[in-house]
C-alpha cells in the first residue's frame, strides 16, 4: 500500500508541478499573480475534447494544439491586458481574477454547464512492487517529465530562457543589456500558458472536462507555489511533488478532508516560518 500511495502521489504531483511552474514563472517575471492560470488549463482540455473527442484527431496532436491554443490566447491577453500592469501586483491580481471569470463564463456559454467526457486514448494498467498504475495516467506522467526536461533545458541553455531569468532578477539591468522587456513578458506568459494548456490537455481524458475544471488545479498550483516559494522554479518542482505525496498519503490513511486541511496547514506553517517558501529567495 505504501508503494501504491507513492505511485498515486507521484502521478498527481507531476501535474501540480507543471501547473505551478507557469504560475510561478509569470509571478517571477511580471509580478502578476495569475488567477486565470486554471482557465488556460481548461482551454487546453476543451481543445482536446473538440479535436480528439469529437473530430477524432490523434491524441498527441490534440494535446499540442491545446497547449498552443492556450499559449496564443495567453500572449494576446498579455499584450492587451496584463502588459500595462507588470510589477503592479494588486491591479494585476484583480485583472487576472476578471480574466478568470470571463474565460470561465465563456466556457460555460460555449460548452454548457455539464461535464464532458473525453474517450481514453490509453487503457489498461501496469504493476510494480504491487502498486498498480493505469497506463493513461502513466503516459501523462511521462509527458509531464518530458515537458519538465524541455523546460529545464530551455531555461538553462536558450538565449530566451536566460533573458527570462535575468528579467526576473533585475529587469532594469536586463534592459541595459538590450533585452526588450515586452518580448520577455510575452514569451513568459506564452510559455506559462503553454504549460497550463498542455497540463489541461493531458488531463482531459483522465478527469471530466467542464468550465470549472480549472479551479482545483489553480488552487493546487497556488498551494504548491507558496510552499516552494513564489517565483522559484525549483520550489515549484519540490512543492508539487510534496503536495502530491502528502495528499496521497493523508487521503489514504486518514481522509481527503484531512489531506486538504494538511495542505493548507503546511501553507500556514511555511508562511509563518519561511515567508519566502521552502526554496524561495530571501527578499532582495
Amino acid at each position: 500500500m505504501v508503494y501504491q500511495m507513492l505511485m498515486n502521489g507521484a502521478l498527481a504531483g507531476l501535474i501540480y508541478v507543471i501547473m505551478a511552474l507557469g504560475f510561478t514563472m509569470i509571478f517571477g517575471i511580471m509580478r502578476i499573480v495569475n488567477f486565470a492560470h486554471g482557465e488556460f488549463y481548461m482551454i487546453g482540455a476543451f481543445v482536446v475534447l473538440l479535436l480528439f473527442g469529437s473530430l477524432g484527431l490523434p491524441f498527441f496532436a490534440a494535446v499540442l494544439a491545446g497547449g498552443v491554443a492556450a499559449a496564443v490566447l495567453g500572449m494576446v491577453l498579455e499584450r492587451l491586458l496584463f502588459r500595462r500592469l507588470v510589477h503592479d501586483e494588486m491591479p494585476g491580481m484583480i485583472m487576472s481574477l476578471a480574466v478568470a471569470i470571463i474565460l470561465k463564463s465563456l466556457g460555460l456559454i460555449t460548452f454548457g454547464p455539464a461535464e464532458h467526457t473525453v474517450p481514453r486514448p490509453f487503457t489498461g494498467t501496469w504493476q510494480a512492487f504491487g502498486a498498480v498504475a493505469p497506463w493513461d495516467r502513466t503516459v501523462v506522467a511521462i509527458c509531464a517529465l518530458i515537458i519538465l526536461a524541455i523546460f529545464y533545458l530551455f531555461l538553462k541553455h536558450s538565449r530566451l530562457g536566460l533573458a527570462m531569468k535575468a528579467v526576473a532578477q533585475d529587469p532594469e539591468t536586463a534592459s541595459l543589456m538590450g533585452v526588450k522587456s515586452g518580448q520577455i513578458y510575452r514569451a513568459a506568459f506564452g510559455v506559462a500558458c503553454l504549460l497550463a494548456g498542455l497540463a489541461g490537455a493531458l488531463m482531459a481524458p483522465i478527469y471530466n472536462v467542464g468550465p470549472y475544471m480549472g479551479e482545483m488545479p489553480m488552487l493546487k498550483a497556488f498551494v504548491v507555489v507558496i510552499l516552494g516559494g513564489l517565483g522559484s522554479i525549483l520550489g515549484a518542482v519540490v512543492g508539487g511533488l510534496l503536495l502530491g505525496l502528502s495528499e496521497a498519503f493523508l487521503s489514504t490513511l486518514l481522509s481527503p478532508l484531512a489531506a486538504l486541511i494538511a495542505s493548507f496547514a503546511m501553507v500556514l506553517i511555511v508562511v509563518i516560518v519561511r515567508p519566502n517558501g521552502l526554496l524561495g529567495r530571501t527578499a532582495r
Binding site: Q4, M5, N8, L11, F249, L250, S251, T252, L253
Partner: peptide
C-alpha cells in the same frame, strides 16, 4: 477529481 488515494484505501 483524483480518487486514487480513496480507492487505494
Amino acid at each position: 477529481q483524483d480518487f486514487a488515494p480513496m480507492v487505494t484505501k
